[in-house]
Amino acid sequence: MSCEKQSPPELPGCQEANGPLDFQLRILSDPRLLAVVRCTVAEFAAVSGFKEDQCRSITLAVDEALSNIIRHAYNNRRDQEIEMRLHADIGCLEFTFVDRGEPLDRSKYCAQPLDAVALGGRGTHLIRQIMDEVVYERVSEGNRLRLKKYLPPARLTP
């Protein structure tokens, strides 16, 4: 499989081949699963029409989001649940993460300049740089994070 796919695959006889795509995962907060999720996200972004370098950056943003959930919401516990939804529609890719961990500490969110020679805190900066929309909400079941990435206009032409 390659991340160089330029458009969704054409499936003969399937009228919904170019319609929305939806994919859901429920994973444990075990960092060893991050590599598995990265492969899935890279392929999903490719099938959704993103170029190879965009697939890489989207994958990085998703990986950083999951790492933050494991590290901060679940305090590195490996046995907690993370729900993840991948949704692709015309020109847009959306990822939703729900966890039942600690709420986001807003005082630490993007708290230091990106170019400072600090040891940590770059994950949230990376997510914001890569994705077009980043929305965090505290909801009844815990934390919900939504990341959106729009396909560049030139790639929307059928």
Partner: peptide
């Protein structure tokens, strides 16, 4: 093949 922010933080720590 892949490095995330924790890998970059490790390199920064070694540089320091």
């Amino acid at each position: 093949r892949y490095v995330d922010s924790s890998g970059i933080a490790s390199l920064v720590e070694v540089l320091k």
